[in-house]
Computed example of a mutant assay.
Amino acid sequence: MASPSSRYDLTGRTALVTGAGGLLGRQHVAALSEAGARVVVTEINLAQAEAAIAALKEAAPAADLIALALDVTAQDSVRAASEQLAGRGVTVDILVNNAAIDPKVTSSPGVMHSSRFEAFPVPQWQTEIAVGLTGAMLCAQEFGGQMARRGRGVILNIASDLGVIAPDQRLYRQPHVAREEEQPVKPVTYSVIKHGLIGLTKYLATYWADHGVRVNAISPGGVFNNQDPAFVERLTRLIPMGRMAEVDEYRAAVQFLCSDASSYMTGQNLVMDGGRSVW
C-alpha cells in the first residue's frame, strides 16, 4: 500500500491549466508543479503564458513549465494546442479548466448599470459563457477524450461558491448611488457559468467512469486581493471563519483532487468557502 504522501506525488505526469496567468491560475500551476508534475501553462497568447512562467520561476526556478497559447473558445485553437503538444511528445494526464472572465463589480452613476440583469448585454453573455463554460467543454472534449482512450486521467473544473449559492447583491451596493436600477451587481453570467461547470463535472464523471477518467470540481470562496475594505468587511460577516481565503490556501486541495490521493472520488464538488454556504 502506498504511503499517504506518495499518493499526492505527480512525478511523471503532465498537467494543463487554462487561464493560468490569473490570480488563482498561477496558484494551480504552482500547486501541481510542487507535487512533481510538468505543467503546461496556457493563456490566450504566448506572451501572457511566458510572463506567468517567469513570475512562477522566481519562487520555483526548477519548475518544469511549458508555455502554450490557447484560446479555449475556439475548437481549432484547442486542437492546434493538442497537436503541438503531441508533436513535442507531451501527453496531458491532468486538465484544470480554470479559464474564466471574472467581471469586476463597479459603479458608474448616471446610467443604468450594465451588470444588472435587465440591461445585461447579449454579446457579453455570449463572450463570458464561451470562455468559462464552452471553453471547459472544448478542452474536456479534446484532452479528456484522449485520457478516456488511454484509460486514465483527471479533470478538475474550477467552480466557485457562487456555483453553490446565489450572489448576495447587498455586498456590491454603493451608498452614493440613489437609483436602484443603477446599483452594481454581480453579473448573471458568473453564477450561471459556475453552476454549469458543476453540472459538466457530474456529467463527465459518469460519462467516462468506466474509462478511468475522474472528474471533480472545486468551489473556492473569495480570495483576499486588496479589495475595497468596506466590501471585505461586508463579505467576512457572511463567512463563519470571519475572513477571506489567502491566495495560496487552495493549493493542497488542488493537489488532492488531481492526484491518487482522491482516487475513489469523482463527480464531486469540493466547497472551500470558509463555511459561507453553510449559513
Rank of each mutant, 00 (worst) to 15 (best):
D64S: 08
S160K: 00
L138N: 05
Y207C: 14
M112V: 13
S6Y: 12
T18D: 08
D210I: 08
I193Y: 05
Q255K: 06
D71R: 02
E182P: 14
R173V: 09
A63T: 11
R79L: 14
R149S: 13
V154R: 12
A52W: 00
L270R: 04
A261S: 04
S107M: 06
L270C: 11
S114F: 15
F256A: 02
S191F: 02
M1T: 14
R116S: 07
Q141M: 11
A253R: 06
D260I: 05
Q227C: 06
A130V: 06
G151W: 01
Q174E: 12
D210N: 04
V105S: 01
I158Y: 14
V271I: 13
H195Y: 12
V188A: 09
P103S: 07
P187T: 13
Q84E: 15
G199A: 04
Q84I: 11
M244Q: 09
Y203W: 11
F120W: 03
G89Q: 06
V41A: 12
D260A: 12
S277P: 01
R149K: 12
G274Y: 08
V29Q: 01
K57L: 11
L200R: 01
A209T: 12
G21V: 03
M241I: 13
I193F: 00
I165M: 12
L16V: 02
S114P: 11
G87P: 08
S77N: 07
S219Q: 06
T11R: 11
A130R: 00
S259L: 01
T206Y: 04
R214M: 01
Q268M: 15
G110V: 12
G267P: 04
V122F: 11
P109V: 11
C139Q: 12
I101R: 13
P184D: 09
S107A: 14
R7Y: 07
G242Y: 09
V271Q: 15
V72D: 07
